[in-house]
Computed example of a mutant assay.
Amino acid sequence: MEVFKRAGDVDRYLIRLDQGDDVLGCIDQVIRENGIRDGAVVSGIGTVSHAVLHMVTTTGYPPVEKYPVWEDTALEVCAIQGMIADGVPHLHAVFSDAEKAVGGHLEPGCITL
């Protein structure tokens, strides 16, 4: 992972991940190491070889949730965005293959290809 910081009225970070990096783990690391309390993740693109999403599958309460996993599967990362609140990222992601796109909450275990 390589981190580029641009300081100013609002600090901005660009994170370049290496093959095998855990996407959410690296984002967490940048948050911790830079003392980021609140912020926004505005863009994330690339490819993963493993993916885990968290999805709510019902409209009732309590919600029924599922955690689909893709292992050894090349998926395009079409988008990652969300917020950082009190030092905790809450991010949504959209992944696609040649057939479909799927979205949900980004979970640990999304590994860069």
Rank of each mutant, 00 (worst) to 15 (best):
Met1Asp: 12
Met1Asn: 09
Val3Ala: 11
Val3Pro: 10
Val3Asn: 09
Lys5Ser: 11
Ala7Phe: 06
Gly8Asp: 00
Val10Asn: 13
Arg12Lys: 15
Tyr13Cys: 05
Tyr13Asp: 05
Ile15Asn: 10
Arg16His: 13
Leu17Trp: 06
Gln19Pro: 14
Gly20Asp: 07
Asp21Val: 09
Asp21Trp: 09
Asp21Glu: 14
Val23Phe: 09
Val23Tyr: 06
Val23Gln: 04
Leu24Phe: 13
Leu24Asp: 12
Gly25Arg: 01
Gly25Phe: 03
Cys26Trp: 10
Asp28Gly: 04
Gln29Val: 03
Arg32Thr: 12
Arg32Lys: 13
Glu33Gln: 15
Gly35His: 02
Asp38Glu: 10
Gly39Ser: 01
Ala40Val: 11
Ala40Leu: 07
Val41Ala: 04
Val42Cys: 00
Val42Thr: 09
Ser43Ala: 13
Ser43His: 09
Ser43Cys: 05
Gly46Tyr: 03
Ser49His: 06
Val52Asn: 10
Val52Lys: 11
Leu53Gly: 02
His54Asn: 11
Met55Arg: 15
Met55Val: 11
Val56Ser: 10
Thr59Ile: 05
Gly60Arg: 03
Pro62Asp: 03
Pro63Val: 06
Pro63Asp: 07
Pro63Ala: 12
Val64Asp: 11
Tyr67His: 04
Tyr67Glu: 07
Pro68Ser: 06
Pro68Asn: 04
Trp70Gln: 02
Trp70Tyr: 10
Trp70Ile: 05
Glu71Asp: 10
Asp72Thr: 05
Thr73Tyr: 09
Leu75Ala: 04
Glu76Met: 14
Glu76His: 13
Val77Met: 05
Val77Phe: 04
Ile80Ala: 13
Gln81Lys: 13
Gln81Trp: 13
Gly82Thr: 02
Gly82Cys: 08
Ile84Ser: 08
Ile84Tyr: 06
Ile84Trp: 06
Ala85Thr: 13
Ala85Cys: 10
Asp86Cys: 08
Asp86Ala: 15
Asp86Thr: 07
Asp86Ile: 07
Gly87Asp: 07
Val88Ser: 05
Val88Arg: 08
Val88Leu: 07
Pro89Trp: 06
His90Thr: 12
His90Gln: 14
Leu91Ile: 07
Ala93Phe: 03
Phe95Asp: 14
Phe95Tyr: 15
Phe95Glu: 12
Ser96Met: 08
Asp97Trp: 02
Glu99Pro: 00
Ala101Glu: 12
Ala101His: 03
Val102His: 01
His105Arg: 11
Gly109Pro: 04
Gly109Cys: 01
Gly109Met: 01
Gly109Glu: 03
Cys110Glu: 01
Cys110His: 00
Cys110Arg: 00
Cys110Trp: 00
Ile111Leu: 04
Ile111Glu: 03
Thr112Met: 07
